[in-house]
Design a protein around this nucleic acid. Sequence first.
DNA 1: CTGAAAGCGCTTACAG
DNA 2: CTGAAAGCGCTTACAG
Lengths: 332, 332
Amino acid sequence: MKRASIKDIAKLAGVSVATVSYVLNKKEGSRIGEATREKILEIAETINYIPNKMARGLKTSKSKLIGLIVADISNDFYSGMARCIEDEAMKLGYTLLIGSSDENPSKFKKLTELFSEQQVDGMIIAPVMDSDETVQKLVNDQFPVVTVDRYLKDTEVAGVRINNDEVSKQVCSFLAGKKFKDIAYVGYDTRLPHLLDRQQGFEQQSTKNGVELQEILVGLDNIAGEVHQGLDRYFQNSSNRKAVYFSSNKLAVAGLGYFIKNNISVPEDVSVIAFDETDAYSLFPVEIDYIQQPLNEMAKAAVQLLDEQIGGQSLQQSMIFQARLIHKKSVR
Amino acid sequence: MKRASIKDIAKLAGVSVATVSYVLNKKEGSRIGEATREKILEIAETINYIPNKMARGLKTSKSKLIGLIVADISNDFYSGMARCIEDEAMKLGYTLLIGSSDENPSKFKKLTELFSEQQVDGMIIAPVMDSDETVQKLVNDQFPVVTVDRYLKDTEVAGVRINNDEVSKQVCSFLAGKKFKDIAYVGYDTRLPHLLDRQQGFEQQSTKNGVELQEILVGLDNIAGEVHQGLDRYFQNSSNRKAVYFSSNKLAVAGLGYFIKNNISVPEDVSVIAFDETDAYSLFPVEIDYIQQPLNEMAKAAVQLLDEQIGGQSLQQSMIFQARLIHKKSVR
DNA sequence: CTGAAAGCGCTTACAG
DNA sequence: CTGAAAGCGCTTACAG
């Protein structure tokens, strides 16, 4: 069944399509007589008129679509973030396109192209390694983009993220204050700047505080396996009181699994601090101390920043939010 | 910077837009001379031409967009499903719009309207309670729709789901075989058909097997609290060996949290079977027996069914997949 | 207060 | 093998 168009309404109401368009868009400028206004509205209602945003977009160059590219929408962190972004986007009248890059630069690039073809008004992206060129191209084209969570070293682009290095320093100081002299940092073997910040912040502070640092850096293919191996080494090498800082929720889940498997008690045998929340923590015998990102505020800021760019203000602003260490019971 | 259009290419190549359109679409019908073909392709490349799917869609009535409506994209189950659907959709050249209904029929309706306005070619939906009318309307309009996970009682619409009642019966029989005489079913207080199936299947089989059934049915506002209360009652009332069947992963997480908090050992003090997987299980001291849905196959089927409808075959087919009970170590 | 007309970027019969 | 032309469903100056 073909959908009703503005033309159908015009015919039924005995007016021009222009008139219909004006009343449907509630333009104040050119007043339409109250009688015809009501008539048009009524007809639109009864024939169940649905405006065609595509046609509208073709004319106005505004699709009211925005694209979100995350590493993997099935990952807790990103689905939580996506949800916040969805809500904010809806509030501003946008509908959300979502794609997962799988940390793959060519898939990432493909997604930006796909979204471009679909005429999204802008994109919120979590750029992957080696996607700098792809993002730079968007920026060069003056295309509205804002990065979330992650950021790019040498590309001038609006973004929102947290104080990764700072918060890692706080963690380190906090543990140093608890007299830990020998701490394990579990992270990814990566060049992603925001993760390097987490790592380097921790490294710097540990030097300052005179704590020995054992780094366990894993790839993406066998996270649990490599985390387990790394923790094996840490537990063999270290004779001091032990503390582990996991720089992502996935790593934390892997590590906590290791503790369960090996009957290592938290915090008796090892103190733990994790990055990001996940439901999974709730099933661990002990409540886990973790770094909390202000997801809602970040999502709101990201959408707002994007909306401003779409609105023509091409500010390449970066917003840095404060993540907080939430104290529970996994550190003693 | 204005984007390059087919017209720009035509001008640069000294041919008509029609010719450009033909070569860009690789139509076999009307051959274009190899020389002009190459010239056009080259120009398109160098000016970085990006086709405007909106304009194309306006003409062809195909947006290559599909909408996915879930209850909440931040929920593990749905984000996992979304990921599978995304992959399948991409394979067929579709881009995915995502919206969360929050179990709210008016929000659900709004989302279908929004997606309609955006001219999606079809929708994959997990309908909420009291959304029957909204879905029926889409079906009446011959709009391509397929339901996933959930389904509707009195609406003829294509869908894919699992054998909810059967699998519950299997669970019940399995537990009865282990000589449990007094089992708790933890579910939602709901009218959603697929959840009622889970519940009623269990009820029927428990009658057949002569096991006593204690039902703990909770609302959405205070899941953990109500689950805890319900389990309190079960543990007070029952003097037999205990077994609990959780009909969703959220319920299971709430219940397992209760066991931890109260020092109740699984499977020593209580046997447990859960519905659906979640990372969280991995941090529980014992591996949990759970019902596994073939998410990948279901996603593939859903997208395929939708694609067929979009392609003009308006088959209202329902596909029912077999969920499986995965045995781990939480039942003794 | 209202309408005729151009045009957004495409596709696609049709004609040559 | 290629082009002129109509049209998808809208919006928006412009004219009246």
